[in-house]
Nucleic acid binder design. Structure first.
Lengths: 104, 104
DNA sequence: CTAGTACTTTCCTTGTTGGCAAGTACTTTC
DNA sequence: GAAAGTACTTGCCAACAAGGAAAGTACTAG
């Protein structure tokens, strides 16, 4: 059992990328359209954010074909999954410092 | 028992203000120096952020004197406390959608 | 050959942040 | 009593991030 050390990550913290990464933790490969619809981002905005996350090493992008149509999918890399978990731990620390109860 | 409806708050989400507000939830009145030291912000940056939070109605600023020296303190308003709780609930929703557990 | 799909890239405008420096209002020190 | 220090506040500015619009790429479909 590995201990996740809290680490606040500015790249992940930004609202749009937080949403993206959280969507990706749930799924394996998620495709462009799905991410665009879930996040309500424009094609160009999504494309840019995916590139940013890819450059950071947090996601992997796969380009395949479905029939003859191109399909772009993304999934978290282990590094991305880790960074997200570490960021969540950091948020948790902030929140618990605040003395708020969290009851799901 | 009041139910807190999740509401993502961009004003609170920004890293510096998230830190500030979380510090304020723990304390009653917190003074300028304390907040500046805990957040590692410059005087000017802190002053501006406090004004931003005050304008939003999230904090209250009190100016008093300790001996002959001025002392600026801040505390959350009920609205601020609520907004923070609602934002935390929103974050929780994002995180839980990701299938990660939060245990305080 | 024109239109459409599925993105990507460039250009540009807008908004946010923090640094730096000057300002305010006193108080303390030399 | 002039200069320096405390405790902030405000104005100006440069850096950067983010998204819209539109053109570009690379095919496929009609």
């Amino acid at each position: 059992m590995t201990v996740i050390e809290p680490r606040f990550d500015d790249l992940i913290h930004a609202p749009t990328r937080l949403a993206l990464v959280s969507l990706l933790t749930a799924a394996e490969w998620a495709d462009f359209k799905f991410l665009r619809d879930q996040t309500a981002l424009s094609d160009s905005a999504l494309s840019k954010q995916l590139t940013t996350l890819e450059d950071a090493g947090y996601i992997e992008i796969r380009k395949s074909f479905v029939g003859k149509r191109p399909r772009t999918s993304a999934r978290l890399t282990p590094a991305g999954r880790n960074a997200f978990a570490a960021h969540v731990a950091a948020l948790q620390q902030i929140v618990s410092r605040a003395g708020l109860e969290i009851t799901p």
